[in-house]
Design a protein around this nucleic acid. Structure first.
Lengths: 153, 153
DNA sequence: ATAACTGCAAAACGTTTGCGTGTAT
DNA sequence: ATACACGCAAACGTTTTGCAGTTAT
């Protein structure tokens, strides 16, 4: 954890961050690269990785592993879970009011002190339930994992 | 999903499966390979991967991604979540009586039909809370994801 | 005789790193 | 002058695949 040092937002890092903030589609590094290159054609994939890593270390970006083991990125915000439609693949945010109760549930049933959990959902989105076989908009993927840290102390 | 064809358990596949059943430590493929080689010194890593894949496709093995994106394997059993101690690294099972209520919670809050979720915990185990800086028994790792399918219809 | 299984080596994939150059949130 | 950031190419660790030989839940 970088202590109190300022966050240096270079043009590259800013472009990466703004891309993530523009759409919350949880892209892979390569997808970020492809999109950011529209603005900065000379940016390399390695720099995108380094930028994402930097932004994550400074708390501006959250990361997540998908079912294939790829890392996916999102601009950090208030913590929430995700749900991915198994028909069209699109990802949406889920806001649960009382998430922490499930941690307490575990503490009561074992001897553990629970410091964090991960939770994500799969399902069918309203549009796809209406039968419109739909856009297949979301980029690939097949299931989501979202970290929900209680650590961080 | 292989329809009704019989499950062919060769010596290699049986050894892999029995290794997973013997200890529920959620090893990586390489760890499985290392252990199975004690019984079958000539088995290759590729065969272990193919066996794990075969066993998973036939419902005998569950897989999970760890935080580094590696796949981890476990003999399929009644569904449960896991918790990993962040001190000693050991993994334990968590049995929640009323898991499905969280899916219903999401359905009520959005328009989604929820067909599955993933849930896993992190924390400190009873022994490590007693200060015994402990065995560091569990193999590496840093956070767990466990699939909890409601699909499967 | 047939189909499935296996070992080996090589490829593929996502991600990280070393190096030399460029830049100055 | 100094520290950081970057592009490029090569390396890395995990997983998959092509091929040729073997086995037979």
């Amino acid at each position: 954890m970088p202590g109190r040092d300022p966050i240096r937002l270079t043009e590259n890092r800013r472009a990466v961050l703004e891309e993530l903030r523009a759409r919350h589609s949880h892209p892979t590094a390569e997808e970020v690269h492809r999109r950011v290159r529209a603005r900065l054609p000379r940016i390399s994939l390695a720099t995108v990785y380094r930028s994402l890593d930097y932004l994550e270390r400074h708390g501006l970006v959250d990361t997540v592993r998908d079912t294939e083991g790829r890392r996916r990125y999102d601009a950090a915000g208030d913590e929430h879970c995700h749900i991915q439609c198994e028909v069209c693949g699109r990802v949406a945010d889920v806001r649960l009011t009382d998430k922490n109760c499930i941690e307490r549930l575990v503490e009561e049933s074992g001897g553990y002190e629970v410091t964090g959990h991960r939770l994500s959902f799969r399902g069918r989105c309203p549009e796809c339930m209406r039968g419109s076989a739909s856009a297949l908009g979301g980029e690939a993927g097949g299931g989501w994992v979202v970290e929900n840290e209680t650590d961080e102390v």
